[in-house]
Structures are given as C-alpha cells and as structure tokens.
Amino acid sequence: MSKSSSVNSPSLTPQFCFNERVLRDFLRLSRSTIDDSITQNMNALLTPARVGFNPSSTGVRQFDALNKSRLPVEACDSFKQNVLFPSWQSRSDVLNYCAMVATSPDPEDPDLVSRQVETAKEQECVVNERLDPYSSRYFPREARTESLANLVRNERSVEQIIRSRSWGIVGERCNTNGSWEDAFNYWIERRSPSSGEK
C-alpha cells in the first residue's frame, strides 16, 4: 500500500469545518481506508511467494497463520511512516484546525441575528410561573461554533479509540512496543524542520 492510497487532506477553511457532513465524511473515509481495514493492510505487507509457489500450501486454509505471522521490520516501518502516521496526522490537522475555528469569533454565522432576536423576545416576555411552571424555561438555539466544538470533541474521542485499536494490531504483527502516542509523537518530531530529517 502506498501513501497515494490514503485519503488526501482537504483544504482547511472555516466553511469546511462548519459543513459538518463533509467533515464527518472526510474522517469516516480516512478511517475506513486505513484503520478500519488495518488487518487487510497488514496482510498486504506479506510476500508469501518469496521462495516460489508450493501447491501443497493451498490444501489447508491458513487464515490463523497469516493473521498471526510477524511482518518484516522494513515493511512495518514503511507502513507506519508512509501510510498510518500520515493518515493520523491528516485527521489531527483537520480536528485541530476545526477546534480553533470553533473557539474563534464567528461574525458570519447566518443564524446570529435570528438567535439574538429570539433572546431579546424571551427577555421581554412576562412569566407567571404559578400559571405555567414551564414558561420560564428558555433553551436558546446552539451557535454553529458550539455545535462544531461538540463534534470535534466527540471525533477526538473516537480517534483515540481507533488509534489504540489499530496500534494494537500493528504491535502484534510488527512486534512493536510502546504506546501509539509515543510512536506518533516521535514520528512528528523526526519530521519537524528543526530535526533535519524527513
């Protein structure tokens, strides 16, 4: 599997983030391409015909042997460096950018004026709680920045679970120790301009 088979990073704009369907679709597609099919991606790294085809090898189903076999170190490193970590980085970049958008002022919010009108009307309303105990309850509509912040928070939780699961499979197949956070952060550090490596 090459890096080109992973999902391309979108151009990051506030409009991209506020279109929650498009944001979710990007994350879903990226995850399904790499993490949801991690076992198949790892199996694709095996080269079972190194010594030539053996007809007797087709006489017995060997799924367990295939799933448990260790992969060559070079293939594992290449997969992690060129496919898995870039995919994670792309999703992290999107979530970090959208989190920034969610915490920034949003003067272009199309619902801003209507929410302000609703709030003003609610404040002018005279409430008699004895006649209607529920009349004092007012639930203003959520701003799109609040909705985006909730989405980013949820997707970050999902991302933690997915990365942990994928790293468990990578660790088993590649004999890799340590946490995914440590490995991913080390990869990021090595790629930074100050490290001199790419």
Rank of each mutant, 00 (worst) to 15 (best):
K3Q: 12
K3I: 09
S4W: 09
N8P: 00
P10H: 04
S11H: 14
S11A: 10
S11R: 10
T13S: 14
T13P: 00
T13N: 05
F16C: 00
C17Y: 00
F18S: 03
F26E: 06
F26Y: 15
S37W: 07
N43H: 12
A49Q: 09
A49S: 05
G52K: 11
F53G: 01
N54H: 04
N54F: 02
S56N: 10
T58N: 12
G59Y: 11
R61S: 15
R61G: 13
Q62N: 13
Q62K: 14
A65C: 03
L66W: 06
L66S: 12
N67Q: 14
K68M: 15
S69R: 15
E74M: 07
A75P: 00
S78A: 05
F79Q: 02
Q81C: 02
L84Y: 11
P86T: 09
P86G: 07
W88V: 12
R91T: 02
R91K: 07
R91Q: 06
R91F: 00
R91E: 07
L95A: 01
L95F: 03
N96W: 01
V101P: 01
V101S: 02
T103F: 10
P105T: 10
E108G: 09
D111L: 13
S114K: 13
V117H: 12
V117R: 15
A120W: 08
E122R: 15
E122C: 09
C125E: 15
C125V: 14
N128T: 09
L131T: 05
D132F: 07
P133G: 04
S135Q: 11
F139L: 14
E142F: 01
T145W: 05
E146W: 02
A149T: 00
L151E: 06
R153N: 10
N154E: 14
E155S: 07
E155Y: 08
R156F: 02
V158I: 11
I162N: 06
I162F: 05
R163N: 12
S164Y: 05
V170G: 09
G171H: 08
S179W: 08
W180G: 02
D182T: 11
A183S: 12
N185V: 02
Y186I: 05
W187H: 09
W187P: 04
E189N: 13
R191Q: 14
G196L: 10
G196N: 08
E197W: 10
